[in-house]
């Protein structure tokens, strides 16, 4: 479903993605971890071309993402993206946030879009907040709205860029619960996170990045209990003891 072929990207002189080869089949839940600056966020931001690559190919659902001629709007409509900082639209209500893309990208009529939006808000447990503005919600609630906003487009892929890193500890659980539910629905997911509990519980595969390279991949059990590389072992011990 998602394929990286010899992908390279530089920010100036910094080689942020160094020859990445990766295949993510439909329905897989992939957790990407690694130290900060390792290129993990950049990697998933390339999947919907929030970042452009300079070399190589990225193919999503048979669409070459790296190709300028590809229909970016259509591609992005199939991919939900959840940001660390939520980025809800502050001038709209929760319901309007979730309805915006279905109405304007999919051209659904308002009633239908509202029905879908309410379903998705129910799915993330925020039915009663539909009339509120983002500023009135807690961080955890805002992130759940952001997930509902992504789901409202019925995407085939959901990308999460450190979805719980900006949250107070007591709110992390509610967001992870929503994500675990998504896994059970068979959603294809790429999650940049350090939440080992989440990774162990639901990930099919863990990918460890350092210095723009994929250093190691494996099942969560293999990766966390028997890391093959010293670099990964060091990283795991750090996030365990912090």
């Amino acid at each position: 479903m998602i394929e990286f072929k010899n992908v390279n990207k530089w920010f100036g002189k910094l080689h942020v993605l160094n020859n990445i080869n990766l295949k993510i089949p439909k329905g897989e839940v992939l957790v990407i971890c690694g130290p900060s600056g390792s290129g993990k966020s950049t990697l998933i931001r390339c999947i919907n071309r929030l970042e452009k690559i300079q070399k190589g190919e990225i193919i999503v659902n048979n669409t070459p993402v790296h190709d300028k001629l590809s229909n970016l709007t259509k591609l992005r409509a199939q991919i939900g993206f959840v940001f660390q900082q939520f980025h809800l639209y502050p001038h709209m209500t929760v319901l309007q946030n979730v309805m915006l893309a279905p109405v304007n990208v999919k051209q659904l009529d308002k009633k239908e879009a509202e029905k879908i939006a309410r379903e998705k808000l129910e799915q993330v447990g925020l039915t009663e907040k539909s009339g509120a503005h983002p500023a009135q919600l807690s961080g955890g609630q805002q992130q759940r709205v952001a997930i509902a906003r992504g789901l409202a487009m019925s995407p085939e892929i959901m990308l999460f860029d450190e979805p719980t890193s900006a949250l107070d500890p007591e709110m992390i659980g509610e967001v992870l619960d929503v994500m675990v539910n998504l896994v059970s629905e068979g959603m294809t997911m790429c999650v940049v996170t350090h939440e080992m509990g989440f990774a162990k519980k639901v990930a099919h595969r863990v990918l460890f990045m350092d210095d723009g390279k994929i250093v190691e991949t494996g099942t969560p059990v293999d990766f966390f209990d028997n890391p093959k590389t010293d670099r990964a072992a060091e990283f795991i011990s750090k996030i365990l003891t912090h």
């Binding site: 929030l50 709007t73 259509k74 991919i79 993206f81 940001f83 980025h87 990208v105 487009m153």
Partner: peptide, 8 residues
């Protein structure tokens, strides 16, 4: 980025 990601 949020707006672009949703396909607008």
């Amino acid at each position: 980025e949020a707006a672009a990601s949703s396909g607008l």
